[in-house]
Write a protein that binds this DNA or RNA. Structure first.
Lengths: 157, 157
DNA sequence: TCATCTCTGACTAATTTTGACTTTAATTAT
DNA sequence: ATAATTAAAGTCAAAATTAGTCAGAGATGA
């Protein structure tokens, strides 16, 4: 897998950092990295946005201002990770409260969520909690939240 | 817990003081602390205002004039229902992702949520999950969800 | 050639650091 | 007692220091 573009090179460098550091996470300064590879700082954002997504198994956090940083964390896939992809695909643009409840219960039955976790999350997805303007938007938000949950559950935590 | 900025360093120092003092509270003199870290006195206010909020799990009292002081107290969430109400009240009608993260971490430190629950709920509240129409609405939805969570935890932990 | 990926830079947003000015409380002088 | 002085801490906004966004230009490959 030869790297052709500078973005590929930066990607490799960062992944090497994670391996060498022998840690689950690594921290960089955007400006430093840009200087090292002689690119504009915003290209670092591009590399991260295209190569260190949650789908790729990375969590990225950052902070601006003095002492700012970008932190990249590697998270490990669960054994049956592909199941989550299927579940995510099965959720459309909208998700009713009832559908959400059923899905959560299914996750519990498969030992993916504890009963307490189901209760908590169900409370957060209830109409009273979301209380967005209209039902359409509410169901949209619920769908996004559920997708986000499934994407996270796909990895160990 | 790496310290990136001087404010981070001062924060760490103060938290270490609380641990070492083996007491619920610690008292400092703003001028002394500023001198010790070679910063202007008002930076101490900044550190306290940004890192020792009730959402962080601290109460701060102070007195001006001769013999003035700043007292930082670690709150006990479980003991006092009032504190819990204060916490709920401290959430306005908007909540940033960073504030939410801080709050969840505080709940974990007090044994109210497990680390796994924090991780999952953090995923639910992430900007990508909530991404409604605009940032304003996003922060509103986040605030509502967080309030729902706290209300629930208050009664059935 | 067309679509997609990469690269750039101007503009925006968040956070920290600094300092001038204000407020409050205790002490000292009248 | 009251006023003046001194000794704290508080407020606020500007400056400095990071990172993020976005749209357009450029490069690449099918």
């Amino acid at each position: 897998m030869a790297s052709h573009s500078m973005s590929d090179t930066i990607e490799e460098y960062l992944k090497q950092l994670l391996v060498n550091a022998d840690a689950e996470q690594v921290e960089i300064r955007r400006a430093d990295l840009a200087l090292r590879f002689d690119v504009v700082p915003s290209q670092i954002n591009y590399v991260i946005k295209t190569r260190f997504t949650i789908q790729d198994g990375y969590l990225v956090q950052s902070k601006r201002g003095g002492g700012g940083y970008i932190r990249i964390e590697r998270i490990k896939l669960m054994q049956d990770a592909d199941v989550f992809d299927q579940l995510i695909a099965s959720i459309g643009d909208q998700l009713t409260n009832r559908e959400a409840t059923v899905l959560l219960q299914t996750l519990a039955e498969h030992g993916i969520l504890s009963q307490r976790e189901v209760t908590l999350i169900a409370a957060l997805l209830a109409p009273t909690a979301l209380a967005v303007t209209d039902r359409y938007t509410e169901a949209q938000v619920r769908a996004r939240i559920m997708r986000s949950l499934l994407m996270r559950l796909k990895y160990e935590c």
